[in-house]
Nucleic acid binder design. Structure first.
Lengths: 154, 154
DNA sequence: GAAGTGAGTCGAGTTTTCAAACCGACTCCA
DNA sequence: TGGAGTCGGTTTGAAAACTCGACTCACTTC
């Protein structure tokens, strides 16, 4: 009996875990709307442009994953509001970095949506090291606990 | 002739622009592999776990959008390497914030992949304001140029 | 009454995804 | 010279997801 070939399992990775929850065309746009303080079904449908049944399915999935919460705010007729949970609010850095990337590398001109920071300037997201506070640079990272070369050299 | 109803166009948004390019289940995992310095087709297939035809389609799309570049490194037999372009490397903040979120809110235990920063600590991504350097806080942002309440209140 | 709103559901048709097999051009090894 | 293996895909056919439009139900407003 021959030995089994080496297993070809995909990389065990929390990025993939995150994408299991929000890695599709519409989920992050739904979260974006809640981040923009929209909370009603029809507003989410209107502002994302997603089909109604897809919005319903995504809302259900995001509620199951505790990213958003569904609250009854009117009994008769039944009306629901969707709000971000703590986990959902923690997606803000993902949205902010995506927004910057989309602005710089996909859309040429001005960004139609802009955030102003209390410091007085437009808020543009920059990733820093939580420990030392320095801004991210690929050359300053080293990958550990995975069998691959150092990152940022590709 | 009645006036047209108010247009129900989705929100014009660079987050949506970004998601047009990388907003599906596999694209960001492909970029992750290139970020981890994998550059060959079979390695990307193995490490992402995606079907081969999907990897081929995503690589093609990412090349078209100038996120990655395809280089012939052997003529006979023809062999190709995929590398991140500047735009692709700029996706690192998105991957790093997604990685943190997946670690904190999807997977309970230890992160199987870890980055060490040259400061001596593990690199954990934190979003800061590029202008003033302060760490992100939803309460310090104000949305402008879009008809919606302030963010972070949902 | 009539029309509109909010929060969805339903059915049909289209598209995408998936898993597995297949392919051509090579290399390696004996 | 022959066989096995690698690389970078493409093809195939079934399963799943998506999209569009219509529809429902329980109200509220005109």
């Amino acid at each position: 009996m021959p030995t089994a070939p080496p297993e070809e399992t995909p990389r065990d990775c929390t990025i993939a875990d995150a994408l299991d929850v929000v890695g599709d065309r519409w989920s992050l746009l739904v979260v974006r709307e809640l981040f923009y303080a929209q909370q009603r079904f029809v507003e989410i449908v209107r502002n994302t442009g997603a089909p109604r049944d897809i919005v319903a399915a995504r809302l259900k999935k995001l509620v199951e994953h505790d990213v958003i919460a569904r609250e009854l705010y009117s009994e008769r007729p039944p009306r629901y509001a969707y709000r971000l949970t703590a986990a959902g609010r923690d997606l803000a850095p993902v949205l902010l970095t995506l927004k910057r990337w989309g602005h710089e590398h996909v859309r040429g001109g001005a960004d139609p949506v802009r955030f102003d920071h209390t410091c007085g300037h437009e808020f543009v997201a920059e990733v820093h090291c939580t420990a030392c506070g320095d801004a991210f640079a690929a050359s300053q990272l080293r990958l550990s606990r995975v069998d691959a070369p150092a990152p940022g050299t590709g």
